[in-house]
Simulated assay, not measured.
Amino acid sequence: MLRIAYIISIVSVLLFVSCTSKSVPSGKEVYTDFPQEQELKGRTILLDTALFRYPFRLHSGDGKVVVLDLHGTDYFFHAFSYPDFRYLSSFGKRGDAPQDMLSAENFRWNGTFLWILDANKSELTRFEFALSGDSLLRKEAVNLDKDILRALDFVMCEDSTFIIPDYSGDSRFCKVCRGGKLMHKFGAIPTVNDDALQNARPALAQAWRSFIDYNPRNGILAAVTQLGEVLEIYNLKDNTHVVCMGPHGEPEFQLSEGYGIPTGIMGFSDVQVTDKAIYAVFQGHSFKDIAQDAQNGVNHLDGGQYIYVFSLTGKPLKKYVLDHYICGIMVDEQRGVIYATDVNRDEPILEYSIKII
């Protein structure tokens, strides 16, 4: 049921979208393959507690790693020591009380603090670890500007602002001040679908829903499309913008009774910008195959079996082929490892050893 709900949640945001093609906008980069390919075998991280229903994201900071459980029963987040993954505590209580969370989309480290996004409450909350280091305290909550349509992801920028994808269709991102107010918007959807740009901007923006990440050390903001195969790279230090399209191109849809129905593929599911490269989890499953598997009673595994590695300017560097289907990644360049979440397993945290590009 969780797998079905996950697919339905993807389709539900795609409203009133017309067809797009695999045409590539002029001036954009196109890649067809990677110069290197390597198979990786994961090592299971054995945890001393069974907590997860759908471990979707994991990020490390301050000697700890936190895992987001997208469908957590009692708590959305679980903290562990790093790199030994010793359980510390759970937080982000699920419920209807004022300090509870209705949903959890993503979270970001900011020094010793953690910022957490609740889309259903349109709220960002800051947590801090107690002096003991094994529990978290809720420090403040920031209500997002009403002009910001449903926020589904965010990053921290310059320690005082947030960058949030814009689903109005007027631009690509919203820059939001520390108090939650919209400052300005920037970027544009790099589509060749002129009709949708003219007549269905909000719907097109929802169709181009992307997962994002930002590295303040090099100023690189990366966005990868959940449908289709598009990577965007914004260098916020020199204001350059690169669009890279793979063989599957833009998200594909057909209009049916006023709704946009995906006809292409499930694309990327996570991205991380390191100091040296951009790592992105890619799926590539077609919606046709997913539907056929469901009809035939075939258990379709969630996640992607590939990690694509790009340079900070969008040049394809390497493709990793994994022995598991994964959703989220955490790349530790210093230790030469990638940690990943596999929602299909009872022991969902995996470790892959890599040679840093």
Rank of each mutant, 00 (worst) to 15 (best):
T112W: 01
T313H: 15
F34H: 10
V281F: 08
L301H: 09
T125W: 05
E158I: 05
A280W: 08
D346H: 14
N199S: 05
K318C: 10
H59D: 11
V142C: 11
K121T: 07
S311H: 12
R94S: 11
S26W: 01
W115N: 12
V337S: 04
I338W: 01
Y320E: 01
G228V: 11
S89Q: 03
D147C: 02
I116K: 04
K237V: 12
P216I: 06
S286E: 10
K28P: 01
F268R: 08
H184N: 13
P55K: 03
L14S: 08
T225C: 13
L301F: 06
A223S: 05
M330I: 00
D342I: 13
A104C: 15
R172G: 00
S171D: 03
Y308H: 15
I265K: 14
L46R: 09
I45T: 01
S12F: 10
K318M: 13
R335W: 04
S103W: 02
E333P: 05
Q254I: 12
T161M: 15
C174Y: 02
M1I: 08
S21T: 14
Q295N: 10
T263K: 12
Q226G: 08
S122G: 04
H241W: 07
L46A: 14
Q36L: 15
N239A: 13
S12H: 09
S23T: 01
F127W: 14
W115C: 08
D195N: 07
K355N: 11
C19T: 14
L40D: 05
Y214D: 02
R178D: 15
T274G: 01
A340Y: 07
P316M: 08
P165R: 03
L144S: 08
L204Y: 04
M183H: 02
K146H: 07
V321A: 14
Q226F: 07
H71T: 03
P165M: 03
F253D: 01
T20N: 15
E158L: 10
P83L: 00
H248E: 15
V331T: 02
I45M: 12
H78P: 08
S90T: 04
P216L: 07
D289Y: 15
E232N: 04
A79W: 02
I349C: 07
S60L: 09
A151T: 05
L317K: 07
V281L: 09
S286F: 12
I354C: 06
V67C: 08
H285T: 14
E29A: 14
W109M: 08
V30A: 09
N193C: 01
